[in-house]
Each structure stands twice: as structure tokens, then as C-alpha cells.
């Protein structure tokens, strides 16, 4: 379980995350949705210790993220942000291999190699595995980074907009993969998503943020409701039942 209590962060005078308290259930997929600038990515960065919080505490599976040893956390929790610009020149396989660093500090065992190959296969990267990252398209690179996180094999997987620059096929494949990781391997997956239909279709639990606070939270079916969504995004959003799923329509 991820527990945040009274977490705050300001940049200068602007308060981006304002005293958020939150309990994310263990297991399943939790999506964090909300308009731009709601503080979703900042919250995720603080939960994953990439960013120091101004106030409050976060525990992940009982470990306090600002106190626990970084390498112990790295075996428990993985994070992938949206901006993965990189000066280093590496192949896809090199990158995925870094996922095993928390376990063996660079000396790969047979078990590590198995994890690496499995992650490469899962993300459909076998044909690209010897290519350098700077020779790939944005979507292919995104999959390579997710493969690294998968090779890290942590109980908690945090992804900031993992569907960025993925086409429809790979976006839904990515979400199915997350679903499988949650159901078959018992991982807890937390995603920041912009596409509320992907969020509604695949998530078990949805947290909506607005202006640095949690505006609403609940099981996906309760959250994909016209009143709830219209309030959060401040626009007309219709919700239709299609093939047993609730689909939001907001293109008009």
C-alpha cells in the first residue's frame, strides 16, 4: 500500500501539491487523472523520492521513501518519468540491463539475463534490442524504458504518462501488459494518464487531482461519470455505455 499524508510541494510562491493525503490500495492498477498543472507528476515524483517534499510523509509498502536506503527502495519501487532525454549512448539491451542494477550492481547473473530477455520480449523489442536508443522513434524508446522498469521487477511500478508517443496498438498493448503485471504477478501499478478512456477501461481505482488537491477518488466505475468528470475538467463530458464499458466523449 502507498500512503501519502499531508504531502505538499511549492515552486516559489506557487503551491503545486497542497497537503495531499491518499491511500492507494495494494495490487491492481491505479490511475491518476486530472487537467494539466494539477500536480499529478509532482505527486508521483515525491512518492518515488525523485523530488523532496516540502511537508508530509510517504510510505511505500511500509518504507518511508525519504528515510529508507535508496537501493532497498529500488528493489521495491520503480518509477519512469515522461522526460527521458539522455546524453549516454546505449543499445536497447544495455538500457534494459540497467533494470537489474539494484540486485547485482552491474554484474549480471543468469537469472538477471532471463529477466532482461523476458522484458524485451514483453515489449516487443526483440528485433530492436541491439539498436542504439538514438536510432529509435519516440514510441520505441518509450517501450525500451518501460522494459527497463519491468526488468527491475519491483512490487510497485509507477509510470508517468506511459502512453506518451505510443500508437493505438502499442498503447493498448502497454495497458494490457500493466493489467497482466497486476493480475498475474501481483504488482501494484500506479499511472498518470491523460486519456480518461484508457484510465476507465483498464484501471481498478482512479484518483482525480485538480489544483494540487485530490478532487475525487474511487473505483473506476464510480469515477467515469459525467458529473464527476465535467467537474474535474471544467468541460462537457458525456459518458456512454459501449460493449459493457463506460466511454467518455469529449471531442465535440
Amino acid at each position: 500500500m502507498i500512503v501519502a499524508s499531508n504531502v505538499s510541494k511549492s515552486y516559489g510562491a506557487a503551491c503545486v501539491v497542497d497537503g495531499v493525503s491518499l491511500q492507494l490500495p495494494k495490487g491492481g492498477i491505479t490511475s491518476i487523472i486530472g487537467p494539466n498543472g494539477a500536480g499529478k507528476s509532482t505527486l508521483l515524483s515525491m512518492v518515488s523520492r525523485l523530488m523532496a517534499m516540502d511537508a508530509g510523509t510517504v510510505t511505500v509498502g511500509g518504507l518511508d521513501v525519504s528515510k529508507a536506503a535508496s537501493d532497498e527502495l529500488a528493489r521495491r519501487l520503480s518509477i519512469l518519468r515522461q522526460d527521458n532525454h539522455m546524453t549516454a549512448r546505449l543499445t536497447v539491451r544495455d538500457l534494459v540491463s540497467f533494470g537489474r542494477y539494484p540486485y547485482t550492481k552491474g554484474r549480471l547473473t543468469l537469472d538477471d539475463k532471463e529477466h532482461i530477455e523476458r522484458a524485451i520480449r514483453y515489449l516487443d523489442l526483440a528485433a530492436l534490442s541491439e539498436r542504439f536508443l538514438d536510432e529509435l522513434s519516440g514510441g520505441q524508446r518509450q517501450r525500451a524504458f518501460v522494459a527497463m522498469v519491468l526488468a527491475q521487477d519491483t512490487d510497485y511500478v509507477l509510470l508517468d504518462e506511459p502512453l506518451n508517443s505510443l500508437d493505438m496498438k502499442h498503447a493498448s498493448a502497454m495497458m494490457k501488459l500493466m493489467k497482466r503485471a497486476a493480475t498475474e504477478l501481483g504488482k501494484t501499478v500506479v499511472l498518470v494518464l491523460h486519456d480518461i478512456n484508457f484510465a476507465g477501461w483498464y484501471s481498478d481505482y482512479i484518483v482525480a487531482m485538480k489544483d494540487g488537491r485530490v478532487a475525487a477518488q474511487g473505483p473506476a466505475a464510480e469515477m467515469i461519470q459525467p458529473q464527476v468528470l465535467s467537474e474535474i475538467y471544467e468541460m462537457e463530458i458525456a459518458v456512454h455505455e459501449l460493449a459493457g464499458q463506460r466511454i467518455s466523449v469529449y471531442y465535440g
Binding site: L50, S70, I79, H85, A88, F98, Y101
Partner: peptide, 10 residues
Amino acid sequence: LGRAHAINLG
């Protein structure tokens, strides 16, 4: 790999 990845990897 950069600050964020280095921290993520422990």
C-alpha cells in the same frame, strides 16, 4: 543515465 534514472535504480 541521468539523475532520475540513477535514483530509481537505487
